[in-house]
Design a protein around this nucleic acid. Structure first.
Length: 202
DNA sequence: TACGGGATCCACT
DNA sequence: GTGGATCCCGTAT
């Protein structure tokens, strides 16, 4: 079942945790790509130096974070990769959850081709492990780019659905790649499913 | 397995 | 003009 706006219109860290185990779906002209979300990070806007919206900064790029919850915030990073976030909290509160890792479930051949230009059974063991275990990698595998910025996840193109009920432990730790963020780099806003091989970094 | 550097470009200053 | 919510490959251990 597809998650609706009320799911996203809540405390960012709760949404980040509850997204674990849920299924990310990209419907590309009827072809479904699906993956279980195994790693997330919260970015808490005003009081979080690691967030693009820190201190209420409002530029064209981060405008999406200020919008209504349940939309995608997609931005280009390091000139070559895209990162997928989901906007949380009520409109005007610039917070979001970064999706950092998913476990491929459906459309794996498509993902393999998007990432490495060959089908799944031709991947090396290394490529297999590195298919979707990182924000740039999963965006490439899922064919997610800037054109999906502001996409409404309550519609049918890009969305998240509830997963199978299963037990897992959630590890709560510090975020990746934000050394510049001073005290915020120590905030425990990163969450992942313990033991899952598609977590980007242990 | 771990580290270092290069790739690449748009948003922001 | 600067630098980043990253990835990949080479080299070394």
């Amino acid at each position: 079942m597809k998650l609706d706006r009320s799911f996203y219109n809540r405390n960012t860290l709760i949404v980040a945790k509850e997204l674990l185990g849920k299924i990310l779906v990209h419907n590309i002209d009827g072809k479904l790509l699906k993956g279980k979300i195994v790693e997330t990070e919260g970015y808490l806007g005003l009081r979080d130096k690691a967030a693009h919206s820190y201190g209420g900064k409002k530029t064209n790029r981060v405008e999406t974070m200020y919008g209504d919850p349940g939309r995608a915030y997609v931005y280009l990073i390091y000139g070559m990769y895209y990162c997928l976030n989901i906007v949380t909290e009520e409109e005007g509160s610039p917070e979001a959850v970064l999706i950092r890792g998913v476990e491929p479930l459906e459309g794996i051949d498509e993902m393999s081709i998007n990432r490495f230009g060959k089908s799944y059974h031709q991947l090396t063991k290394y490529q297999n492990r590195n298919l979707t275990n990182g924000p740039g990698k999963l965006s490439m595998a899922f064919n997610i780019d800037k054109t999906l910025d502001k996409e409404n996840l309550c519609r049918n193109r890009l969305y998240v659905e509830s997963g199978l009920e299963e037990d897992f432990n959630i590890i709560e730790t510090t975020r990746i790649g934000i050394d510049y963020a001073e005290e915020a780099k120590d905030f425990p806003y990163r969450f992942y499913i313990e033991g899952n091989p598609y977590v980007s970094k242990l």
